[in-house]
Design a protein around this nucleic acid. Sequence first.
DNA 1: CGTTGAACCTGTTTGC
DNA 2: TGCAAACAGGTTCAAC
Length: 292
Amino acid sequence: MPELPEVETIVRGLRQPLVGRRITVVRLGKTDFMDDPAALERDVPGCRIEEVTRHGKFIVMRLSPRNENSAVEGLLVHLGMTGHLSVTRAEEPVVNHTHAFFALDNGRELRYTDSRRFGRMGVFEKAALEQVLAPLGHDPLEVTRSDFAKRLAGRRSRIKAMLLDQRVLRGVGNIYADESLWRARIHPARLASSFTPQQVKALHRAIADVLKQAILWRGSSISNFRDADGEPGEYQLRHRAYGREGRPCFRCKVKIRRIIVAGRSSFFCPRCQRAPRNSGIQTKRKSTARKS
DNA sequence: CGTTGAACCTGTTTGC
DNA sequence: TGCAAACAGGTTCAAC
């Protein structure tokens, strides 16, 4: 569910109800996806939420220390595949798989729900928080074309794998990788280092355009994504490749195909997005021409 | 270095 | 209808 546009949508919806509020009580359910559940219960009550921001797919709630002995800097949340945050009245019925409750000083409650528990949650001091975020690559909405080109040329991997690598670009996931590649007319199994300057330019632009559009439409609701107010996004109605196996390409009418690249379903148009010569399908030949 | 497959865990959809 | 398999927005790690 949650890639950059979905996380951005959630963050925007959380700012109004959360910024300026003080957290009074923390209650936890299952904690196997949390960094240090005891620290959450011990250190977060009394803190005030100063700011809610997004770094790639991470949500950071910057906290004011509750006293001079506290070094708490922020609450970090990653939604994984099925994570969700919402702010409700404290007496609202609790939906299944709700694993964290943060009572607020106005009688409302921030709740975290995550059926698969692939998410992540923790409270961190400044240095530790920076350590978690440091490996993340460029913001895909801000990276310059030349920086983007450098990253692509720097390594010899398939473009799909690169787009999913959060150390290269932070925030792109399976849906928006496929949507961007469709727009740029690039096959997901192509080696990024083989691109022409025109292809680099097209992909750089496609990524930013797709993400911006998706944010405007408040994200993609494939099965259960909901914004902070419980409303679904609408960008799934505008997908051109993802999830469209067997349906006609919007440009050329050829049927969209699904293959596995980088271990993930990858949807593409076999006509608009030409396959690389020597990739994707088996063809394991003993190569003797390996130089080093 | 880079790729693949499995693992983490639960729910939903698809196929026979 | 019923049950099993396949699949799912993410990340990480071992093995090759």
